[in-house]
Amino acid sequence: MGEKELELLEILEKNGRLPLTDLAKMLDSTEEDVNQMIKHLEDEQIILKYATIVNWNKVDKQQGVTAMIDVKVTPKREVGFDAIAERIYRFSEVKSVYLMSGAYDLSVIIEGETLHQVSRFVSEKLSTLDSVLSTTTHFIMKKYKHDGTIFEEKDKDHRIVVSP
């Protein structure tokens, strides 16, 4: 992978909505070259998706429940953790699955409409899988920062401090 492609990835990761003209200027390249680089990165599945971060706290709508679940599993011979991770990420409630170091093997992030729906997922779907030994569920109460985006940055007081 070339240096320009790496730079392009870093730029798009911060803001995937930049116009081709701006990207071309930033990379000192032509729009056509940038467009070809993006297509190549998409075809190679290096760029998988363009996403929007939404602060649901500011939307008048039931926000639902997000939970982070630590999962301890028994890895399968010859496939390790991959097979159980795949079984877990295929559930529609699951938004993310990560292989972790430490006390637990997998970190699973799920979303549901209610606490009851999340608890049913854990007790009826996740915990019943053959390889799952134990789970610990943590409910997200408030998001402060997600993917580098601060949700509610306070206005800073820029006045000079005056003291007697």
Rank of each mutant, 00 (worst) to 15 (best):
33 D>S: 07
75 P>S: 05
95 K>T: 08
36 Q>V: 02
97 V>E: 03
75 P>F: 03
89 Y>G: 04
119 S>M: 03
50 Y>G: 05
146 H>V: 09
1 M>G: 12
20 L>C: 01
145 K>I: 15
152 E>W: 12
85 A>D: 05
28 D>K: 12
160 I>C: 09
53 I>C: 01
51 A>L: 11
33 D>M: 07
116 H>Q: 09
115 L>P: 00
73 V>R: 02
56 W>I: 13
124 E>V: 00
93 E>T: 12
69 I>D: 01
44 E>V: 03
89 Y>L: 15
68 M>G: 03
25 K>T: 06
124 E>L: 04
147 D>K: 10
101 S>N: 13
27 L>P: 03
70 D>N: 14
146 H>E: 13
163 S>A: 08
80 G>K: 11
69 I>N: 00
53 I>R: 10
40 H>A: 09
108 V>F: 03
9 L>E: 02
143 K>G: 03
61 K>H: 03
12 L>F: 01
145 K>F: 14
88 I>L: 03
130 D>P: 04
23 L>H: 00
63 Q>N: 15
160 I>S: 09
154 K>W: 07
23 L>D: 01
162 V>M: 15
38 I>N: 07
62 Q>P: 05
27 L>F: 00
111 E>I: 07
32 E>L: 11
99 L>K: 08
44 E>P: 00
154 K>N: 10
54 V>L: 09
57 N>S: 04
64 G>Y: 04
70 D>Q: 14
142 K>P: 05
103 A>D: 10
11 I>M: 06
56 W>K: 15
97 V>H: 02
123 S>I: 11
109 I>F: 10
54 V>W: 08
116 H>C: 04
134 S>M: 14
64 G>A: 08
122 V>N: 03
39 K>N: 10
94 V>P: 00
150 I>L: 13
131 S>Y: 09
118 V>T: 07
28 D>I: 06
86 E>L: 11
111 E>M: 07
114 T>R: 12
151 F>H: 13
21 T>Y: 06
74 T>R: 15
147 D>F: 15
30 T>V: 09
78 E>L: 07
113 E>K: 12
33 D>A: 05
137 T>D: 02
67 A>N: 06
77 R>S: 11
59 V>F: 04
19 P>S: 11
74 T>V: 13
150 I>Q: 15
24 A>C: 14
118 V>P: 02
36 Q>T: 05
83 A>W: 02
37 M>N: 04
31 E>S: 08
61 K>M: 03
50 Y>T: 08
64 G>D: 04
133 L>C: 12
42 E>P: 03
62 Q>C: 10
158 H>G: 00
140 I>N: 05
103 A>V: 11
67 A>H: 01
105 D>G: 07
48 L>Y: 11
12 L>R: 01
39 K>S: 09
88 I>C: 00
159 R>H: 06
10 E>H: 13
40 H>D: 12
114 T>C: 05
102 G>K: 04
6 L>A: 09
71 V>C: 00
22 D>L: 09
21 T>R: 11
84 I>R: 01
